[in-house]
């Protein structure tokens, strides 16, 4: 299961709307417990695929190292990633699968149709190696902060 606050959930979706018709991407920081990836923060990243940003994304390793360093200083881990699919369903593609290497992490995809965020789904990259990895549908639990309920 992927747990995150409504604020973070909305921020991820808004990012996809802002970069439309290009794909957005970012990194989810938090903590992993058994069967749960709990998100504490979502960090926006640049999409280096300027040659095909409408249907591809790539995060520069150097930017990732910086994000990983920030996470470490805050006592958090990289527990997942997000990106958008402009005018395309919120389902992983063959490219997403081939390029997924962070086993145990959550890959969140938001469909953005005509500039408006639609479905958001999460897929856990299960398995123990490149040879047996598989995407599994992962439920998303959105926590509403107490202050927001009042």
């Amino acid at each position: 299961m992927l747990k995150l606050t409504e604020q973070i959930y909305n921020a991820i979706r808004r990012h996809g709307e802002e970069t439309y018709p290009h794909e957005c991407c970012g990194v989810l920081l938090g903590r992993s417990a058994q069967d749960v990836n709990e998100v504490e923060d979502a960090v926006r990243a640049g999409n280096t695929r300027t040659d095909a940003a409408h249907n591809r994304y790539n995060i520069a390793p150097q930017e990732l190292i910086g994000i990983q360093r920030q996470a470490r200083e805050r006592g958090l881990d990289i527990i997942g990633f997000y990106h958008s699919h402009p005018d395309h369903p919120a389902q992983w593609s063959e490219t997403d699968f081939a390029e997924a290497h962070w086993l145990g992490c959550s890959y969140v995809i938001t469909s953005v149709q005509n500039g408006v965020a639609q479905d958001t789904n999460s897929f856990l990259l299960a398995g123990t190696s490149e040879e047996n990895k598989a995407f599994e549908n992962e439920p998303i639990e959105i926590a509403v902060l107490e202050a927001e309920r009042c």
Partner: peptide
């Protein structure tokens, strides 16, 4: 750092 990439 394993790479992060993909797309529809």
């Amino acid at each position: 750092i394993p790479s992060i990439a993909g797309g529809r």
